[in-house]
């Protein structure tokens, strides 16, 4: 390697090593987020079925009054790699929701497995009227529509570790950092509550509180942190339902490519063996 190249790479390496820990981009003037350990992170990540079931329970009992999930079908809740509820249970659940169908006499019918999750409000205007002018976002891809991307050069660290959970970390930190009062000197609007992670007021009041939702059995703590983790995991599943099969196939593909690359290298060496180059 030429001297110039050596100096350049040494410089680059020392810059990279000098940075001790990933520096995070906290939104606006908020406090630094706490990254969570998610079961679905990393190349061996999978969803925790029980967690997804708990998360769905929170979604249904707490969030779905205001937030839609229009890209999720009821049948998704029964499919492998997700909450994996029994079909009969979801069929029963679906029949409690009504799908608007103007062609029918009654104008609506009970939902079936094949239907998408119905919106809680008929129009955007209605949604805003009920929520003080704010529009509760649809949950379908919300966990991918938020991020805690690290700034250069630590974004390369994210690429190397396949960090895709920025949306989950964002949502979790949002849910657990509501404050009763904004800090001194900070003004927020009447219909807002202060959130120290965002560093500003937010029109959604804190949706979670201790013992809000009863989990069946389990011995899982009924704390805000637990609820936040569970509902966030469920939201991430909604955004990425094929995560488990994707990572499984990916592992196989990487192993295959590594083996194939090695074989191709040996073939290349064998072919070039007699040629001075």
């Amino acid at each position: 390697m030429s001297k110039m190249k050596k100096i350049f790479s040494a410089l680059a390496l020392s810059v990279l090593l000098a940075i001790p820990a990933p520096t995070l981009a906290a939104p606006a003037s908020g406090k630094a987020p706490e990254l969570q350990k998610w079961s679905f992170a990393g190349i061996f990540g999978t969803y925790d079925t029980n967690q997804l079931q708990r998360g769905f329970q929170i979604f249904q009992e707490v969030c779905s009054t205001c937030h839609g999930a229009s890209l999720i079908a009821f049948r998704n809740l029964t499919e492998a790699g997700g909450p994996e509820f029994p079909e009969s249970q979801i069929k029963q659940l679906a029949s409690e929701y009504y799908i608007i169908d103007p062609e029918l006499e009654e104008g609506e019918r009970p939902a079936i497995l094949a239907d998408q999750w119905p919106n809680p409000f008929a129009t955007e205007r209605e949604a805003r009227e009920v929520n003080g002018g704010a529009l509760p976002p649809d949950f379908s891809v919300l966990a991918k529509a938020r991020n805690l991307a690290k700034k250069f050069p630590m974004n390369f660290y994210d690429m190397a570790t396949a960090y895709q959970e920025g949306g989950a970390d964002f949502i979790y930190n949002l849910l657990v950092n509501y404050e009763d009062e904004p800090p001194h000197g900070v003004e927020i609007a009447d219909n807002q509550q202060y959130n120290s992670f965002l560093g500003r007021g937010i029109a959604m009041m804190s949706p979670l509180m201790e013992e809000l939702v009863e989990y069946d059995g389990d011995g899982v703590p009924l704390t805000v942190e637990q609820y936040a983790k569970d509902v966030t995991a469920f939201m991430y599943w909604m955004a990425d339902p094929h995560l488990v099969s994707r990572k499984t196939i990916g592992l196989n593909v990487l192993i295959f490519l590594s083996v194939f690359a090695l074989l191709m290298y040996l073939v290349k060496r064998r072919i070039w063996a007699g040629v001075k180059h």
Partner: peptide
């Protein structure tokens, strides 16, 4: 030995 490497690689490639 040469053919074994080529044949194996070709087979692996075909599967891929």
């Amino acid at each position: 030995r040469r053919d074994f490497l080529y044949v194996t690689t070709a087979a692996v490639g075909a599967v891929g």
